[in-house]
Structures are given as structure tokens and as C-alpha cells.
Computed example of a mutant assay.
Amino acid sequence: MKKLWDISPPVHAGSPVFPGDTAYSQQWVARIGPGCPVNVSAITLSPHVGAHADAPLHYDPEGAAIGAVDLQAFIGPCRVVHAIGCGPLVRPEHIAHAMDGLPPRVLVRVYERMPQDRFDTALPAFAPETVALLADRGVVLIGIDSASIDPAESKTLDSHQTIRRRGLRVLENLLLDDVPEGDYELIALPLKLTTADASPVRAVLREL
């Protein structure tokens, strides 16, 4: 069998969220016992907790909800590119070594170890010119192991607006700590949430 890399961080009550966003919580509404054969829980969370796909609705008031987004971008050939320690922005020079023969999906690893116990207010993000360069090369999906493709303090969301204009899809909060640089098959399907601005994904990479 082909090797799988699970690139989804664990989701639980301690999972970091953007300041002010809704953290994960879970309550039991039924427990196995006399007269009840099952456990049933109710969960509350932002759709941006853990590995997730942003919908155009997240950054465009007229954009599509995640349930209406075509799934094709979220499955297929993918390249993982290391830009560890690149600083606040992934610039074109940080990924120049991996640009030959790009597949349609590119995931960029910026952390040596992704912070899973805190929100990184200094999170590394994409420079908008890097997003534009990847779009020019035929890339249809970009991803990153930080919480956003834009700096946490950004109010203009330049990289999100670049993917809006260029029609790209995006994955954030991936766990790439143990993934070598190279080519894989990506499988990271969002849920069919018909009115939501994002969706959790169970993202995996499979060796080619």
C-alpha cells in the first residue's frame, strides 16, 4: 500500500484559533447506559479550526459558500515546498528552487514544528506576488502550515484577495512537520456546508 501522511492537526478544546474566533467544544447529549445504546455528542467550532479550506465567501461578500465550491482542486498531484524560517512572508525567492514542473497544487511548509498549543500572532504568510506567480504557473490550490495565507494583523488580506481574483483555492493550518519536500497526491475534501465560509478537512498526502 502507498504511504499516507496525515497532515491534519488534532482538533480538540485546546486547538488554537484566531483571537476572537470560536474554539472547539463538545458536549455529550446521550451516553451509553440503561435505556440508551449509543454515545451522541454535540460540537461547536469555527470552521477555521484545524486544517481547513476557506470558501470564497470568507473574503468576498458575494463569494460562494464552501458547499458550492468544486472539489477538483482539493484532490490530485501536489508539491510540498519547504520555506522554513522564511520570515513573515513567503516570497518568490523562497520557493524558486522548487518551481520546475509544478503540479496544480502547492503546499508550503514554513514551520520547523507547527505550533499546536497556541495561536502564532507572528504567523508566516504568503506575499501576494508569490500567490500571483503560482497562479501564473497554473497552480489551482495553495496551502500553508500556518493559520492564514495573510499576516494575522492584516486588514486588507492581500493574498486572500489575490486568490479571489485568480480563482485559486486555499488550505490553511496544515501539519507538515514530518513531510519531506517533494511530490505527492493530495486529498483534502471540504464538507458540503451549504452556507459556511470554510470547512474542516481531513487532509492527507499519499505517495505517488
Rank of each mutant, 00 (worst) to 15 (best):
P180F: 01
A135V: 07
D100M: 15
I66E: 00
V108I: 06
A98N: 02
E172P: 03
S146W: 03
A65W: 05
P56W: 09
C36S: 15
G182W: 13
P180W: 00
E185R: 06
A122H: 03
V11E: 07
P56I: 00
G35A: 13
V17A: 04
D70E: 12
K155Y: 05
D70P: 02
L107Q: 13
R202D: 14
P104C: 02
F126C: 06
D177V: 02
P37S: 08
L205G: 02
I7E: 06
F119E: 08
A98M: 02
M1V: 04
V40Q: 15
T22W: 13
A152F: 09
H94L: 01
S46H: 08
L171K: 04
L171Y: 01
I7W: 00
V131L: 03
W5N: 07
A196Q: 12
A42N: 07
G85I: 12
S25I: 04
F126D: 10
N173A: 11
L157R: 15
A132G: 05
E153F: 15
P16D: 11
L176Y: 11
M1H: 12
V139D: 03
I144C: 09
L45F: 06
I187N: 04
P88Q: 03
R113C: 05
V11W: 05
A68E: 13
R165W: 00
V81D: 03
Q161V: 13
V108P: 05
T22E: 15
L89M: 10
V204H: 12
K2G: 06
P88T: 12
E181S: 13
I84T: 14
Q26A: 14
L189C: 08
H82L: 15
R105N: 09
L189W: 00
K2I: 09
V110N: 01
D197W: 04
E129P: 11
Q27T: 11
A132M: 10
V108Q: 09
R118L: 05
T195W: 06
L134P: 08
M1K: 03
D60I: 03
Y24E: 10
G63R: 02
R109N: 14
T162L: 01
D178G: 10
L45Y: 11
I163Y: 09
Y184S: 03
V49R: 01
V170L: 00
Q72V: 13
V69N: 08
L208N: 12
A42P: 01
A42Q: 12
K192A: 15
F18V: 14
P47V: 05
E62T: 11
L189R: 15
N39G: 06
R31A: 03
A152Q: 11
A65P: 14
L102V: 12
L191K: 08
L171H: 09
L208S: 01
L4C: 10
A132V: 05
